[in-house]
Amino acid sequence: MSSPSPSSVASDVCMSLQDVTISYGSFEAVKNVYMDLPRGKVTAFIGPSGCGKSTVLRALNRMNDLIPGCSLKGRVIFDQHDLYDKRVDPVEVRRRIGMVFQKPNPFPKSIYENIAFGARINGYRGDMDELVERSLRKAAVWDECKDKLKESGFSLSGGQQQRLCIARAIATEPEVILMDEPCSALDPISTLKIEETMHELKRSYTIMIVTHNMQQAVRVADMTAFFNAEAVEGGTGKVGYLVEFNETENIFNSPSQQSTLDYVSGRFG
């Protein structure tokens, strides 16, 4: 699994990164990443700050398009398409690959509309009330919201807002959900609830999650990718790269790289 295989794309592979290098302007933030992300599993990205985890994650649904000067070399294969092909519509991509962000970012709308908005623009034709309830339930926030669906999304607490954002992402029924440190701004109880939600979700979705919390990676992830960053000769900053990508158990119990072992055992980073 960990061996780079640029050409063959197995059927249970959801997304495949082939020699991906991402730069901000002329600064290369991550270099030469090869990865086959399996379908229907949770993959965790771990590594020290600034090694490019978020950058790679955002590359998976072309969120980096919003950052001026950010460019990508290499190929990101999803559903037999290279996502960075000129003909690909990033809007289309994001409808199939949803995202939950580090900071909760509900829309300036009611709780109900926060959910319904995404579904509606994705052409949802079913029963909207039912979808809202189902999504909120899946995100484990229904009980807190059910009596105030008409109130602003901002009236919820931070943890509830984050779960609302997860519900919003689920409601559009994407095939993949990307989560960038979804629990970093939350208290332990909300974190636990969101982890339960993830266990629930991985039955129907492929999930990629960036986390700084190693216990969390162990608890929720089937696969783990360890990134690191190194200063290079003549470079302006540290360049990130993928060190090791394997089953979570292997990464934490018998990593093949010394730096992985150092990181997961808390000896650095």
Partner: peptide, 21 residues
Amino acid sequence: MSFLTPPTTSAFGERLTLHYD
């Protein structure tokens, strides 16, 4: 391991291609 297919039984329209139209 078992749920390898994305949720296809949805009320959303068909989304086959990623190409810009």
